[in-house]
Simulated scan of single mutants.
Amino acid sequence: MAKAKKKEKPVILVTNDDGITAPGIRALVDAVKDLGKVVVVAPDKPQSGMGHAITIGQPLRLHASTTFGDIEAYECTGTPVDCVKLAVDKILRRKPDICLSGINHGANHSINVIYSGTMSAALEAAIESIPSIGFSLLDYSIEADFAGAQQYAKILVEQILKKPLDKHLCLNVNIPAVSASLIKGLKVCRQAYAKYEEDFNERTDPRGRNYYWLTGEFVNFDKGRDTDVWALNNNYVSVVPVQFDLTHYGLKTKLEKIFK
Rank of each mutant, 00 (worst) to 15 (best):
K184L: 10
Y193F: 15
G250L: 12
I25Y: 08
N233T: 10
T204G: 08
H105I: 07
L161K: 05
I54S: 05
G69M: 05
N235R: 11
Y140I: 15
V173K: 06
I71Y: 02
V11C: 08
N172Y: 01
N210M: 14
G106D: 07
Y74N: 01
L92E: 04
L171T: 07
K187C: 06
V242A: 01
G36S: 05
I12T: 00
K37I: 09
K90L: 12
K257N: 10
S116W: 02
A149I: 01
P46A: 09
D82N: 09
R93D: 09
H52S: 15
K37S: 14
G185F: 08
H248C: 12
V40H: 02
G117P: 00
G78S: 05
A31M: 05
F218K: 07
D97H: 11
N235S: 13
I258P: 00
V32S: 02
S136M: 02
D245K: 05
R209G: 05
K3G: 14
A194M: 11
F146Q: 02
P206M: 06
C76L: 09
R26E: 11
R94A: 15
D34T: 14
V29N: 01
C99Q: 06
P96W: 05
N174P: 03
V88Y: 06
P80E: 03
I130C: 01
Y140S: 15
E8V: 13
N16H: 10
T77Y: 06
E72F: 08
D70W: 08
Y115H: 10
P176T: 09
R225V: 12
K33G: 08
Q159H: 13
K37Y: 09
A53Q: 11
F135C: 04
Y212K: 15
K162P: 03
Y152T: 04
Y211W: 11
T215F: 12
A64H: 12
I71G: 02
I114N: 15
V40C: 00
K163Y: 11
A149N: 01
G49A: 08
V178P: 02
D139F: 06
V237T: 00
V157G: 03
V188C: 09
A180R: 11
A125E: 01
S141E: 09
E202C: 11
V239R: 03
P176F: 07
G24R: 04
K252A: 12
A42F: 00
I71P: 00
K6S: 12
A27V: 06
N172T: 06
A4S: 14
N104C: 11
P46K: 03
T253F: 11
D199M: 15
I127G: 08
P241G: 08
L165D: 13
P46T: 10
A125C: 06
S120E: 06
G134I: 03
I114P: 03
L28F: 07
A177M: 06
T67W: 05
E256S: 11
E197L: 15
G148D: 04
N112D: 14
K5E: 14
K195H: 15
G19E: 04
A4H: 14
K95S: 10
V41N: 01
G24F: 01
A73T: 06
V237G: 04
